[in-house]
Write a protein that binds this DNA or RNA. Structure first.
Lengths: 352, 352
DNA sequence: CACGGTTGGTGAAACGATTGGCCAACCCGG
DNA sequence: CCGGGTTGGCCAATCGTTTCACCAACCGTG
């Protein structure tokens, strides 16, 4: 196989020095070259099929044009793929590429993974912990620009991007209220994650705004048996919804902590002979299309802006480290808007 | 910030040459060093917190310890995350890391993406096209070891790993037959992808084996309206299933092309007052847990071995390029077994 | 014609590792 | 004391870029 051709081959073929070639190919400002030379170099480079060697450049410039993405459970939650996608797109737009590692939540593995990233001189790191958790930043990342994804950290110096759970919960419940519902239940699991607190807060605020008294008996918590699995959530959602629906004065609207729990609510409703949305309106959270779209009628839900989160995180990171165009900026912490995705599971409450 | 410390710092601190440090740290065979020196170097490296610079090493050795992963629709299909995960795990086990790019199916973007990978001197490439399609390998990848993932290629010189769709279809239908079903329908979409042909083939073989005549009227094809979306598939699955279930002599078992279509079948059954699995047994394909587990009763289905595919692809790639331990091997093309995931949607047919 | 300013470059030292070739010192038998 | 093998280790080139520092030639001007 023919040796890969480098900058010096181009220089030789064009009859100039490598310095000149480098200047021209990189469009370095302030360095002059005649239009003719410039033209010739480009052409020769093209003809020879010159490809930059990023390892060599990185060695010299101390920037690898590479971003490390470290996730504790890549793809365990399906939508996390969208985070990666968003990050990758934003990175690619700046000529950067994502270096992916996964830790499966294992400390030791995480250490090794981070090491592999640092060894490769990543320009920065995206540290993604699914489910909007509170985490602490591994020591080894202290010295590299890092932004947290779907997670936050005690230390205020660490930038992050998370979904605005409160606004999301508020939006979900508002959708019910606007359709005329006054008696609105909520079904939740029992894990104490920030996401849960936020969504409950949103629920309460929306009620309050509408002048509806908050009734604790309308929020039903059930523990998932097989925790974290779709089946576990759906089952917990079923039990929680059932409890609410057999109440004396049952709610006409239901806000479910997530789409999986909403699936359980559908089952509970069906079992009790309640039709959706005729007898019961339901709104979920997450917009996992595999659930929200395959349910019938399709589930109205609030979307977790995964793609945007990935994209914003990269943008933040790049702002942090500075790009050729712009200087390094300040640490930012961002909460992203969660839009409503209205489908067919919400309508006016039945007249009594 | 203190300059990162390099091999020469270690050498200086240990009072030896960089050559010696390199030999020791890399455990180069055939190069001798006294036990004492060895010990000292390790210790000094540890104390100073020496970290290898992979860019520099890669520049010298012409291996970046990096694998490019290029997908046309990363994470569009949720389980594709599992492919990446499998690949990442297998790579990490060999000290390699995945460089991720996505093309969104755009030719131009693909070209640029591949370029970015090659620029970074990846040791090999995983080219993943979701949905087991037939693709042709981009010209620019010809000169780099590449293995196809969930895709195949006309050229027999290109290694690939795909699921064994025929076996999968066979397994699905066998599950029904073993429970006593003789009248088994199949619901499919209309896209002509290899996956479809394979699964149909598996269906026919299983019937044949059991001495059941193949009846074309029992395979119902419906075109998805919003193609590719879960809602589209579910809807097509609903229509197809409905057609079969209102037949004079309706099937007692249903093999659905995928889990989304199975979700549609559930709806059709419910609408017609048929209970699952009492009146109708259903088996899906893909094992998208978000669907198969949130359906009620939980869906028996055949699993696409995404994780293993990713892992095997990396193994193949590494075999192809050769590792320190083993020499480069031959091109291999692999079909992976699709196991049955039995849940609650299959039982014996109702007695008539 | 001497001089300062521009134009259009060039040379060579990094960056941080790997590795082929060389070599001094020691040991041991004869 | 010589010769040859082994031990333990070092020199310097190299990988492909970037970039600092320098410079020859030319041009217009006073």
């Amino acid at each position: 196989m023919a040796r890969r051709i480098g900058i010096k081959d181009v220089a030789a073929a064009a009859g100039v020095s490598v310095t000149t070639v480098s200047y021209i190919l990189n469009r370095v400002e302030g360095k002059r070259a005649s239009a003719e030379t410039r033209q010739r170099v480009w052409q020769v480079a093209e003809e020879l099929g010159y490809k930059l060697n990023n390892l060599a450049r990185g060695l010299r410039t101390q920037r690898s044009q590479t971003i490390g993405f470290i996730g504790d459970e890549i793809a365990t939650t399906p939508n996390s793929g969208r985070i990666i996608l968003g990050a990758q797109d934003a990175a690619a737009a700046q000529g950067m590429v994502l270096l992916l590692v996964n830790t499966g939540g294992d400390e030791e593995l995480e250490r090794r993974s981070i090491e592999m990233l640092l060894q490769r001189q990543v320009d920065g790191v995206l540290y993604a912990a699914m489910y909007h958790r509170v985490v602490e930043l591994p020591e080894s990342l202290r010295s590299t620009p890092t932004v947290l994804l779907d997670a936050r950290c005690e230390d205020p110096a660490v930038p992050f991007v998370v979904p605005d759970e409160v606004q999301g919960g508020h939006t979900a419940v508002r959708e019910l209220i606007e359709h005329g519902h006054r008696r609105i239940g909520m079904t939740i699991g029992v894990d104490d994650i920030p996401a849960l607190q936020g969504r409950i807060e949103g629920y309460r605020r929306a009620l309050e705004e509408a002048g509806i008294r908050y009734d604790p008996s309308l929020v039903a918590a059930e523990k998932a048996v097989r925790i974290g699995t779709p089946a576990g959530d759906a089952d917990a959602g079923y039990r929680a919804a059932r409890r609410l629906l057999i109440m004396e004065e049952r709610p006409t609207g239901l806000f479910c902590f997530n789409d999986r729990m909403a699936a359980g609510a559908y089952r509970a409703a069906a079992e009790l002979g309640l039709s959706i949305p005729g007898d019961l309106s339901v709104v979920g959270f997450d917009n996992q299309e595999l659930v929200s779209e395959t349910l019938y009628p399709a589930l109205s839900t609030v979307q977790l802006p995964h793609y945007e989160m990935g994209a914003r995180a990269v943008t933040q990171l790049l702002a942090l480290t500075g790009t050729p165009d712009s200087p390094p900026g300040p640490v930012t912490q961002e909460m992203l808007h969660c839009p409503l995705v209205a489908r067919a599971s919400v309508t006016s409450p039945p007249r009594l």
